[in-house]
C-alpha cells in the first residue's frame, strides 16, 4: 500500500524527503478543499521536482465543472498530457470525457467521495481503463473488503484527515451574515468558523470559497487501527493534510511510515485521541426500520 499525501507546494520539500510515495496537490480553478491550489503554470516545475525525488505527483481536480469552465479545462488537460503528472483525481465526468479525447484515461483516478460504494461501480471504471478508484468515504471496512474481493483495479482510500461531509454551491456564510446584518465575520480568518447543532456537542468546521460552502466532520479520521486490513485491499492510502499544520502533518506521515514498517497500529492510534475511525465500523442505514432492527 503506497502512501500519498494531499498537501501544498509549501510542504512539498519536506514531504519529498520522507518515504512517501506520492504527493497530491490542487490546481487553481479545478480543485476544492485543498490546502493550496497551484497555478497551472507552476506544474511543470513541481512535476520535475517530484520526479527528481523519485516520487509521483497526482493532481486533485475534484471541483464541479460548470459549462463556462469547459474550454479552460480542455486546454489544461492538453497541458498536463505533456507533463510527467502521474495521476489525476477527478469527480466530474467532463474530465473523463475530455481525458478520453486526449489519451489521458490511464492516468485518471476516480474520486467522487461518496461513491463508488459497490463492486459494480468499481468495475465500471475498471472497464473504462482508469488507473485507480478511491472508495466512497462512508463505507465500512467490511464493505471495502467485499468490494476488493470482487474487483481487480487498484483501490484507494482517504484514510487520514478531516472528511468533508457537505459542499453547497451556495454562499451560506455570506448569506447568513447578510440576513443577520452581522459584522462578526470581519477580520476573522476563513478557517475560524464552526457549526454546532444544539443537541450534539460537536463542532463542524465550515468555510466558504469561490466554489461555495464546505462543512467537515468534527473529528478527523485515523486508520492505524485497521492498517493491516487496509494493506490487504488498498493499493494507495491517502492522508488529507487540509486541517493540519506542517509539524502535525509531518508527525502523521512519520506514523504512517512507521506502521508500514511494522509498528503496531493500535499503539500508534493512541497518539490520536482526538481522531476516530470514521465509518470503518459505523454502519449507516438506508431505512428507519433497518436502524430499529439493530
Amino acid at each position: 500500500m503506497e502512501l500519498f499525501v494531499k498537501t501544498s507546494a509549501d510542504h512539498l520539500s519536506d514531504l519529498l524527503e520522507k518515504e512517501v510515495d506520492g504527493i497530491i496537490v490542487g490546481v487553481e480553478g479545478f480543485s476544492v478543499r485543498m490546502k493550496e491550489n497551484v497555478a497551472p503554470s507552476a506544474l511543470a516545475m513541481l512535476a520535475a521536482k517530484t520526479k527528481r525525488a523519485d516520487k509521483r505527483l497526482w493532481l486533485n481536480l475534484n471541483a464541479f465543472i460548470h459549462e463556462t469552465a469547459l474550454d479552460a479545462l480542455e486546454v489544461f488537460l492538453g497541458q498536463i498530457a505533456e507533463l510527467p503528472i502521474d495521476g489525476v483525481l477527478f469527480a466530474d465526468f467532463a474530465i473523463m470525457r475530455l481525458a478520453e479525447k486526449k489519451g489521458l484515461v490511464s492516468r485518471l483516478v476516480y474520486h467522487a467521495e461518496t461513491s463508488p460504494t459497490f463492486a459494480e461501480d468499481v468495475r465500471f471504471f475498471e472497464r473504462a481503463g482508469v488507473q485507480a478508484v478511491v472508495l466512497g468515504r462512508e463505507l465500512t471496512i467490511k464493505s471495502m473488503e467485499t468490494i476488493a474481493a470482487k474487483t481487480e483495479i487498484p483501490l484507494v482510500f482517504v484514510g487520514h484527515g478531516r472528511l468533508n461531509m457537505f459542499h453547497s454551491r451556495r454562499r451560506l456564510l455570506s448569506n447568513y451574515f447578510a440576513i443577520t446584518e452581522s459584522d462578526d465575520e470581519k477580520g476573522m480568518p476563513e478557517d475560524s468558523f464552526t457549526l454546532r447543532e444544539e443537541s450534539r456537542n460537536e463542532h463542524y468546521p465550515v468555510y466558504e470559497d469561490i466554489h461555495g460552502t464546505h462543512i467537515f466532520r468534527d473529528s478527523p479520521t485515523q486508520s492505524f487501527t485497521v492498517w493491516e486490513r487496509l494493506e490487504k485491499i488498498l493499493s494507495f492510502f491517502i492522508v488529507d493534510g487540509l486541517f493540519y499544520d506542517e509539524r502535525r502533518l509531518r508527525e502523521i506521515v512519520d506514523d504512517c511510515i512507521a506502521v508500514q514498517k511494522g509498528a503496531r497500529g493500535g499503539d500508534i492510534a493512541k497518539k490520536y485521541p482526538d481522531h476516530d475511525e470514521g465509518f470503518f465500523f459505523r454502519e449507516t442505514f438506508a431505512k428507519e426500520e433497518e436502524e430499529k432492527k439493530r
Binding site: 462512508e138 461531509m165 454551491r169 449507516t284
Partner: peptide, 22 residues
C-alpha cells in the same frame, strides 16, 4: 442544500445514509 449525491451530513449526524434513502 448540498450538491446532490455528495452530502453525508445525515450519515455522520444520525447514521442514516443520505444516499440510500435515509
Amino acid at each position: 442544500a448540498s450538491y446532490s449525491g455528495r452530502c453525508t451530513l445525515s450519515n455522520h449526524m444520525t447514521h442514516r445514509d443520505a444516499n440510500r434513502g435515509g
